[in-house]
């Protein structure tokens, strides 16, 4: 089997969400001396991009995306240690988390995977994250973007505090928001820089924000 073929199989296996098979395929590609960076750029990332397409087309929903994300992560667990020696060009750094008082993690986890597949460095703060922690982490990591998710009407209020604190501290970091009850109108009303409709849209939104940052 040629290197092109193994990358194709790995890509399709990620799309199929077969997390048990992807580590062995990633290892096989490494054993065939495919450069780790190439495995990411030619198989893993395009696979998740295609998963995003399948979502947009109404073919994939949360269970399918979740399994593809798991398959992607399983492959990356094999590849990532080998990437450490190579300085990759990052799309940007995103501090990501779920609002305080909210522990719904699925959407946030999918956003994290899609951003990573899109070349972003993601600092995942998890769920039930106080506004202060978003700010402190963004300062410490010199982040470009803070991404905040909420699934509950009671917790989405915390997004406003984060936007307020970013302004109060005079930080250059952009704030993007998303989650079940959140929409563009709400994002505008609290002064967030952007709203992402779903995990796939979050990548597009983050890239647009990076263009703004680099253009300013």
């Amino acid at each position: 089997m040629g290197t092109k073929k193994i990358l194709e199989i790995l890509k399709q296996t990620i799309i199929d969400g077969n997390r048990k098979a992807t580590p062995a395929l990633a290892q096989k590609a490494i054993d065939m001396e495919v450069p780790p960076y190439t495995i990411v750029t030619d198989a893993c990332s395009p696979a998740m991009a295609e998963v995003g397409e399948l979502y947009q087309q109404g073919e994939y929903f949360v269970p399918e995306i979740l399994m593809s994300a798991k398959a992607f992560e399983s492959a990356m667990a094999i590849i990532e240690p080998l990437l450490k020696s190579k300085k990759l060009e990052l799309a940007g750094t995103v501090v990501l988390g779920v609002c305080e008082g909210d522990i719904h993690s699925i959407g946030k986890n999918l956003v994290a995977t899609m951003l990573e597949a899109g070349g972003f460095n993601v600092i995942d703060l998890g769920t039930d994250v106080p506004a202060k922690k978003f700010i402190a982490t963004a300062i410490k990591s010199n982040a470009d973007i803070i991404g905040v998710s909420a699934l509950m009407t009671t917790s989405m209020i915390g997004m406003k505090d984060i936007v307020h604190m970013v302004k109060e501290e005079g930080l250059g970091v952009k704030v993007m928001v998303g989650g079940g009850p959140v929409n563009q109108e709400y994002a505008d009303s609290i002064g967030a820089n952007a709203y992402g409709r779903d995990a796939m849209d979050a990548v597009r939104v983050a890239r647009n924000l990076m263009e703004d940052i680099r253009g300013s």
């Binding site: 969400g17 949360v62 269970p63 399918e64 979740l66 399994m67 719904h104 699925i106 986890n109």
Partner: peptide
Amino acid sequence: DTQLIMECLVE
């Protein structure tokens, strides 16, 4: 966990 439900729907 809802995520486990989602995983089991497939696996």
